[in-house]
Design a protein around this nucleic acid. Structure first.
Length: 644
RNA sequence: GCCGAUUUAGCUCAGCUGGUAGAGCACCUCAUUCGUAAUGAGGGGGUCGGGGGUUCGAAUCCCUCAAUCGGCACCA
């Protein structure tokens, strides 16, 4: 007999091999009916799995958070069956659960169109209504290959062949339809419910490999309840309203045009925001002991050959040839330039760590499909810096960078940060003991950060070929993740360029180079800020902080007085003197996301006061002009200067 | 780069099966000086993304290039 422990601590004895379903039924038929799966010692499995040994059991119903993944996975199988029923000859591949839903990749001569969604969903509802039981079978490799070959499922055959020999092949049947799947599943298709929706079609490479065939992917989502699906769809609409490309037009920040794909035309307001970010970062870096430099945009090909970029990234570089037939490239990175500055003049160990920073504009010919607003562009500015130091200094410097990054993100309102360590890739340079040291140093940073409650993780083998890296990912107000800051340890480049310093023993020694960016790309960070705040930027970042709205022309002179006074105080302010109603002006400047509206009429002009209306509020407060300006000046101080 | 979709006035979008363009907002002019999210009237504005083709005739059909959007791949 085996002993099964229930969540309330009660224990009961059963014959070995008893299933979760048997146990549920022995308690009550209604429990058996509403249970869709079970967790054995915390691991979710099929309800009909036999239980071989003592275990803690939990019954999972549809409303259980753990059931959501099952609902989506089951729904993916139903989607596949529906598609094969409607479009014979379509091959199935894989259909995993992802954040917010699931997808299924099909191989079909004709791509899907959203017009077909209604028919597919209808078929899915039929399959769900039939409430077919999910039945698991374990097949041999040969049996599976024979079956899928006969069915013309070439991709499934390939999948079976890649599964390790010691692993069971599980087949899940729903009626006559079946799929190779590691499970688990719920008890029947009826448990999926009706809160699902096909979202979009897309192309995707088989096994994520661009040399392999292109498949047709259908993205979909499913929830336990209709209300949850509706809430999710509402959230998507909200995300669309926050789209930085849309807000940029409404706020008059920048634009793109055909002649410059992936390159930004910054308008006055956008550029003011951009420069505000640079000023902030410049102050932070100066305080942290960095020096700021500027290196050439265009450099001879030979330099990029030495750095290794020519060999690896030639296709992604903008290259130009001059009349004298010299070949130059627009810099895709700032590092080689900074190494040149390090090399110019003899350096001593006493100069280390030497922290060279640059707001460096780089050009990369990114694949056309990668471009996305200002999040991914072909010309962008990095808040780049390179720290030349000794091996012993790596840990300390990486830790200082970390503290600086965390403090900076906090200043911009980002608190949900994930830090990941990418370790040595297969193809790399440098000896293993040097890698050991570098990884150990970054690992200690990672562990220290983890202790402070920040989420951390490891991406094995994802490091750069020249060294391991830490990557900082921000989560914005609607849960999307963006990689921004990075710290990379590099043993390679200084050596390639023959950089050295004179060590205490008078020997020429190659320094370690730490690459580091905190915003990452100024363009991307600006985009993230816009979306994170939904355009409602805090006063210190807002490119136009105040708009004066006159109610009648009698207030015009007073408006000009206010502007002169406010500008002297450093506030970014404009006046709207147009002959328009106050309602009209309030609406227009609210849509343009101006944080502060000062409305003035005859009354305010007479008593030198202002009526203040803040973005996002309908309330109005009246106060004297001096009082109002003093409060706004105080509010507009950047967070780092407030601390001083 | 790959798969799919899209591209009509500054913006958002109509324009059925081919018969040579419309609306709202914006803009300009005039009137209105009106207290917190759209005052009224009038007016101007588009070689329908570029190029090529089919046709008596193309915004509409075909080819091609480009840009954009959604994914995939890529991101030093």
């Amino acid at each position: 007999m085996i002993s099964v422990t229930f969540p309330d601590g009660a224990q009961r004895q059963f014959e070995p091999g008893v299933t979760g379903f048997d146990i549920a039924k022995s308690i009550s038929p209604s429990l058996a009916k509403r249970t869709v799966a079970m967790a054995l010692d915390g691991v979710v499995t099929d309800l009909c799995d036999p239980i071989a040994q003592d275990a803690k059991i939990e019954f999972i119903n549809r409303e259980d958070p753990r059931a959501l993944e099952l609902i989506r996975h089951d729904c993916a199988h139903v989607l596949a069956e529906a598609v094969q029923a409607l479009y014979p000859g379509t091959q199935v591949t894989i259909g995993p659960v992802i954040d917010n839903g699931f997808y299924y990749d099909f191989f079909r001569a004709e791509p899907f169109t959203p017009d077909e969604f209604a028919a597919i969903e209808k078929k899915m509802r039929e399959i769900i209504a039939q409430d077919k039981a999910f039945v698991k079978e374990v097949w041999s490799r040969d049996q599976a290959i024979a079956h899928f070959e006969k069915a013309g499922e070439a991709f499934k055959v390939e999948l079976v062949q890649t599964i390790p020999a010691d692993q069971d092949l599980k087949i899940y049947k729903q009626g006559d339809w079946l799929d190779l799947c590691r499970g688990p599943h719920m008890t029947s298709t009826g448990k999926i419910g009706s809160a699902f929706k096909l979202m979009k079609v897309a192309g995707a490479y088989w096994r994520g490999d661009s040399t392999k065939p292109m498949l047709s992917r259908i993205y979909a989502t499913a929830f336990a309840k209709q209300e949850e699906l509706d809430a999710y769809l509402t959230q998507l609409e909200e995300a669309e309203r926050r789209d930085h490309r849309r807000l940029a037009r409404e706020m008059d920040l920048f634009h793109f045009q055909e002649e410059g794909p992936g390159t930004v035309f910054w308008h006055a307001k956008g550029w003011t925001l951009f420069q505000t970010l640079i000023s902030y970062m410049r102050r932070r870096q100066q305080q942290a002991g960095y020096i700021e430099v500027n290196t050439p945009q265009v450099l001879d090909r030979a330099l990029w050959e030495t750095s290794g970029h020519w060999q690896t990234y030639r296709e992604n570089m903008f290259v130009t040839q001059t009349e004298d037939e010299r070949v130059f490239a627009l810099k895709p990175m700032n590092c080689p330039g900074h190494v040149q500055i390090f090399k110019n003049g003899l350096k001593s160990y006493r100069d280390l760590p030497l922290k060279i920073a640059e707001f460096g504009t780089v050009h990369r010919y990114e694949p056309s499909g990668a471009l996305h607003g200002i999040m991914r562009v072909r010309a962008f500015t990095q808040d780049d810096a390179h720290i030349f130091c000794t091996e012993e200094q790596i840990m300390d410097e990486a830790m200082k960078i970390n503290d600086l990054i965390m403090s900076i993100y906090e200043d911009f309102g980002f608190t949900d940060i994930v830090l990941k360590l990418s370790t040595r890739p297969e193809k790399r340079v440098g000896s293993d003991d040097v890698w050991d040291k570098a990884e150990a140093a970054l690992k200690r940073v990672l562990d220290t950060v983890a202790e402070s409650g920040i989420k951390t993780g490891i991406n094995p083998g994802e490091g750069a070929f020249y060294g391991p890296k830490l990557e900082y990912t921000l989560r914005d107000a609607i849960g999307r993740e963006w990689q921004c800051g990075t710290t990379q340890v590099d043993f390679n480049l200084p050596m390639r360029f023959g950089a050295f310093y004179i060590a205490p023993d008078s020997e020429k020694t190659v320094p370690v180079m730490i690459h580091r960016a905190m915003f990452g790309s100024l363009e991307r960070f600006t985009g993230i800020l816009i979306e994170h705040h939904a355009g409602h930027l805090p006063l210190w970042l807002s490119p136009q902080q105040i708009t004066i709205c006159t109610i009648t022309q009698e207030a015009d002179d007073y408006a000009m007085e206010i502007i002169a006074q406010a500008r002297k105080l450093g506030l970014r302010i404009e006046a709207d003197l147009r002959n328009e109603k106050i309602n009209y002006k309030v609406r227009e400047h609210s849509l343009a996301k101006t944080p502060v509206l000062l409305c003035i009429g005859k009354k305010e002009a007479a008593e030198k006061s202002v009526s203040i209306r803040r973005l996002g509020s309908q309330a109005q407060t009246s106060m004297s002009l001096d009082e109002a300006l003093a409060a706004l000046v105080a509010e507009a101080v950047p967070p780092d200067q407030k601390r001083m």
